[in-house]
Every structure is written in C-alpha cells, then in structure tokens.
Design a protein around this nucleic acid. Structure first.
Lengths: 145, 145
DNA sequence: AAAAAGACTATAGAAGTAGTAGACTTTATT
DNA sequence: AATAAAGTCTACTACTTCTATAGTCTTTTT
C-alpha cells in the first residue's frame, strides 16, 4: 500500500505543476487546498526539495514551486523518496537492494525471480508516468503521451 | 513490501508442492525445514487451509498437504489471503475496493488511473505465476510455462 | 525591527506486523 | 478406553513503522 506521505507528495506536485507560471505557493495554502495536514506536508515538501524536485523561497512572498518540468518528474522517483523501494521484496530492488532475512540461496530463489518480474512490470508504468501525465489524466479520459 | 507472512506462505506451499505424493507433512517439520517460527506458521497454514488450498489431517500420522495441483495455485491468490489487496491504493483494487480517504473525485483522479495500470501490470505476473512455476524456477534458469 | 515564510529535529500517538501462549478437538494406536 | 499425536482457534504482547504535531531556528522582505 502506498503511504499517505506518497499520496500527499504526488498531490502536492500535481498542484504545483498546475500552478507553474504563477508566484510560488505557500505551504499553508497548498495544505488547505489539498487537505493535507500542514506540518506533515512541510516535511514532505522538504524531502522533495532536498531531492531537487522543488524550489523554495523563504520570507514574505516566498513559497514552493517545481524545480523541473512536470513532464520530467516521474512517479517512480517520487515513490522512492517517500516510500523507499518499489520492489515487493528487498532482494528484487534495483535501488534499495538488500538480502532477504529468510533467504538461503538467492541465486536459485524462485520467489525472487518472480518478484523481479513484478518489479519490472511495475516500473514500466511508474518510471514512464510523469506528473504531467497525471495532470493530463485528471481532466480527460485516459490517453497517455 | 511483502509481509513475512506471505513469504512464509509461499515457502510452505512450495515445500508442500515438492512433498506431493508422500505422506502429509507436520507443521513442526515444515517449520524446521523452512526456518519459520512454528506457531506463526501454524496460523498461516490454517488460513490457507480455510481458503481451500490445503488439506489437513489431525492425529498421529496427520499433517498438511496441498489440496490442489501446484500449477493451479497462483501467487496472486496467496497474496490476497495473507496480505490483502494487491493494488497500491484501495480505490484501484479489484477484490478489496475501498474509496481513498483523501480522494475528492475518484472518476477524474489521475493517480487512480495510473495505479490501475500498475495493478494490471502486477497482476499480469502474479495471476499467471503458480507454485509450480516457482518450483520450476528454483532449479533451472528462468523459463516459464 | 518586525513579520512572513521555509528548515530542521524531536517526539507522541496510532496502526499494523511478527510472534507467542494456551486451551480445545480430532484421530490413531495400544 | 486411555493416551499421545497431531491440527484448530482465539487472545494477547512486543515491536516497528506510519502519521501527525510541536517547537525552535534561519532567511528574506518590508
């Protein structure tokens, strides 16, 4: 299950994507608009900022805006920042590889092989869907690209 | 992340699959062989039994065995018993549908549409991979079917 | 100097996961 | 019939992770 943190992150990025061109958006406004607990959102935005996805400005008239094009921010990368690995088992993770506790011989593990397939299938979607795609899908029916 | 419960379940099914033809296997032996805490395994096997995947026999000489062909037990079904929904958001779940807390309008939700794609991609693997496939993959390289 | 914003760290509460305990039921053996 | 060998079922505890909140500090504008 996707954490709330991740959902909030995506929502925030979508909102900031729609806000592009306008002055930066303050945390408080964003929190209200998207119905996200303010202090929680604060942390999330910080993470996204430290990962290079957001630009922030302090002081009066400050706030947050995207630091990349909505079309260059992929869900896979967001998930990895907020939730960590995308794979369902650590031993099948590309970016967060770790040996499974229960595993004796990883090389011949049938479970692992299957979940590498799952990971690939998942990534095929998440690494190709950007914030721009999510925004596009919000309004119209279903198209992609 | 897959729960330990699910991993244990798959391991147990694989072990029982390999044991087919022989007398039923006792929980204690299975637990030792697969290095699973006995009482925890007990619960898991019960769930699988109540879902119709295992046959059990009480008393001396009793134990557990598969109630279906290994080729007819699919990982997707196992996951659903042990971990619940396969989709990453409840609103994208086929078998455990539930409205997301944070969601205003599900119909136009771009997040939902994307995660329905993810679910479909995941299921394409998990609903077609059986315990027999996992066993096959353990020994040899990588083939399927 | 004051106010408006974000940055950062710590902590508390809630929920979910992993594991343990124990009493009960069924079946086989003697 | 008695005993022992299994599985059945429910409750509970400990631990970890997730969600959320609080508070103090820093930067920037007016």
């Amino acid at each position: 299950m996707l954490s709330k943190k991740t959902k909030y992150a995506i929502k925030a990025l979508v909102a900031l994507g729609k806000n592009a061109g306008n002055p930066p958006m303050q945390i408080v406004r964003l929190a209200e608009q998207e119905m996200i607990p303010r202090k929680f959102l604060e942390q999330i935005l910080l993470d996204m900022r430290n990962a290079g996805y957001l630009y922030s400005k302090k002081g009066a008239g400050g706030g947050y805006s995207l630091n990349k094009e909505p079309g260059d921010i992929y869900l896979a990368d967001i998930l990895r920042i907020t939730d960590g690995p995308i794979a369902m088992v650590p031993c099948a993770s590309l970016k967060f590889y770790r040996k499974c506790d229960e595993c004796h011989d990883e090389v011949t593990c049938g479970i692992r092989k299957t979940f590498i397939d799952v990971r690939d299938a998942t990534l095929k979607v998440l690494a190709q869907t950007s914030i721009a795609d999510v925004i596009a899908r919000e309004t119209d029916g279903n198209f992609k690209e």
